[in-house]
Design a protein around this nucleic acid. Structure first.
Lengths: 190, 190
DNA sequence: ACAGACTCTGACCGATCGGTCAATTATCGT
DNA sequence: ACGATAATTGACCGATCGGTCAGAGTCTGT
């Protein structure tokens, strides 16, 4: 049970998502871990390094998914398959996603967050590929931001493990409704 | 043109939403207003007071709406009417709503934010009145958090004024879809 | 011209921030 | 048992935080 390094990552992730990155001090993280601030800075060279380590796994996984997506088509089936994968991703990395979405805009100039924002843009491009209509853009924004919010809101953080299957099913259904209507809005022109 | 007081409120609102409350220093607000930090603290006794002044109008308006709601029934028509009013509210106070939703959980113990969180709870109670199903709760969370996110995301902050009518129509349509399906999920039992 | 309020400012305060560093303690391969 | 390496610590640093305060400028009504 290697304490410290991995523990710190988990503690930092929880604090960053609940209290916010800039509102979380290294001292607090150290206290929660039962260490001194110096020890935290021994494992992670800086607060920003700790942030990077915190979000890196989720970011790499999301990049994987997006890279694999390039080849895939924009068919309704393609979207449904992608959404299913995306829901699994979001459930696994709910805290990280919440950080990207909620604090991404306020953490510009932090390299790893800029990278995350770029990923969000790639995601938006996928869903807005065939349309520039305001409604479609809003659907994407609501689906993404809403999911991120809901999965980390104090209320929903309560129910865990045993209801995860039900959550996944409901989330997938709602996102399909928002992003891949069974009756396509218009025949795709090209 | 009474400078200062009202200007400061607007500047603080913009900074609190884009950079976050705890990441925004009084010094920065003063700079943006062309004043000294001392002047900011002359108009508002503390940073927290400034926050309260910033969000108070939106909070009072939302309380108005919720109070008026008590009498109204839970009929589909009631929901539709409420949603229309709610969309207007959200478009008018988009930044404030974004603050409530995104930073509410991290600003606990700030009285005015606790009050705001209570309002969100009242709202949730209205929509979850007849059901405790996970899906319904998720629908509400996604609708609320998604709308707040989308209306303050860097991309959507771009298009303004001229498209507001189109935005309202699209937003209302999407929220109706999420929260008041034309085909009620089940006949309401009681 | 004068008094009193309103507005603004710089100097200053204690606390806390992220971060450095030298020294100490634990751990472990040999 | 010993040396090396990893882990941890407290003392300390400059910067910045929110906030206080005494005073100076500005604007009134009289």
């Amino acid at each position: 049970m290697s304490t410290s390094a991995e523990d710190l990552r988990a503690i930092a992730l929880a604090e960053f998502t609940t209290a916010g990155y800039s509102a979380t001090s290294l001292h607090r993280i150290a206290d929660l871990a039962g260490l001194s601030k110096s020890s935290v800075l021994y494992h992670y060279a800086s607060k920003e390094t700790l942030l990077e380590a915190t979000v890196a796994p989720a970011m790499h996984r999301m990049e994987e998914i997006l890279d694999a997506l390039k080849a895939s088509a924009l068919t309704p089936e393609g979207r449904a398959a992608f959404l299913s994968e995306f829901v699994d991703f979001i459930l696994q990395y709910r805290r990280e996603v919440n950080m990207f979405i909620n604090q991404g805009p306020s953490l510009v100039d932090v390299p790893v967050i800029d990278q995350a924002n770029e990923i969000v843009h790639r995601l938006a491009d996928y869903f807005a590929a065939n349309t520039a209509s305001i409604e479609e853009k809003m659907r994407f924004g609501i689906a993404l931001g809403g999911t991120a919010y809901m999965l980390c809101s104090p209320e929903s953080m309560a129910f865990e493990a045993d209801q995860v299957d039900e959550m996944r099913a409901a989330l997938l259904k709602i996102l399909m409704e928002l992003l891949a209507p069974v009756t396509p809005p218009v025949a795709i022109g090209e």
